[in-house]
Design a binder for these strands. Structure first.
Lengths: 144, 144
DNA sequence: GCTTGAACCTATAGCGACTATAGAAATTAC
DNA sequence: GTAATTTCTATAGTCGCTATAGGTTCAAGC
């Protein structure tokens, strides 16, 4: 069987939006597929697999650059498993750092919300938490 | 005393970069400060407080739009504490959702790293985790 | 064969929250 | 007076998309 897929079918099968697929192609993450006479893209199973890999990497929080590295490593039959592991474990560290950041934020928000509702507007605990004049802090690793 | 500050001094005192301070001004988050004859910005203590508030909000993961809302609420002497609480607790939910996402990612990365190093390249567990053909997933709330 | 409507195409601009660059002018320290 | 530092403006780039506009192709029904 192994028929080819339109970009819409590929999108449905992978959960990756059509515009995003085209975007990945423009970035060079996905190879330019064969086109119909009219110029529509047609994808193979191999390309579907590659896209799945990209999506999975993204859903694990890897940057597109990291995903690209991973794809290169996988394609290089000489490459050691070690290089892949390294990328993954350095990413794991980043993930853990983000969790730690977020937990601090969670705790502070919880604390100020807990003491609020009991005080007047002038001493709103949440407002105080935000206004608290602390020492300059380095920006956290948080993106948003 | 209450002297004014240059943008560089303000930056050092708050930990907010000079370019970022100017950026906040352009967005209207910080009022345009008085200038010297030569056109250099001079800041007051009130503006320093406002900037601290913004930075604190950002470090708690609030968007600039949310910070702007919070500032408006604080300035409005009529406003109820409740509105502030609502913003904070809805943000807390977002934070918790992000933590949950990241924990799943952490677990998956840990799991694949644990089983790796024991297998040959061909069955690299990390590579498999990434290649795993799963059902289409909705994108997580993660920004980066 | 013809028409309709969905899916597809390209190109460009926008989002958020900055960051980087270039080149000029002001300020401060000696 | 000069040299170093800081500041100024304006513009473009980052990341990972998303949205818009305006046009073309494709598949199905008649």
């Amino acid at each position: 069987m192994h028929e080819t897929l339109t970009i819409g079918e590929l999108s449905r099968r992978t959960g990756c939006k059509v515009v995003t697929i085209r975007y990945y192609e423009r970035l060079g993450l996905l190879p330019a597929p064969v086109r119909t006479e009219g110029g529509h893209r047609t994808y193979t199973r191999a390309q579907e697999e590659r896209l799945r890999f990209i999506c999975r990497g993204r859903s694990l929080g890897f940057s597109l650059a990291a995903v690209s590295n991973l794809l290169d490593l996988l394609e290089d039959r000489q490459a050691e498993c070690g290089a892949i592991d390294e990328l993954a474990s350095s990413h794991l560290e980043t993930v853990r750092a983000k969790i730690a950041d977020l937990r601090q934020i969670e705790a502070q928000l919880e604390a100020s919300l807990r003491t609020c509702g009991k005080t007047t507007r002038a001493q709103c605990a949440v407002a105080e938490t935000l206004a608290a004049a602390g020492e300059p802090e380095q920006a956290s690793h948080l993106a948003g």
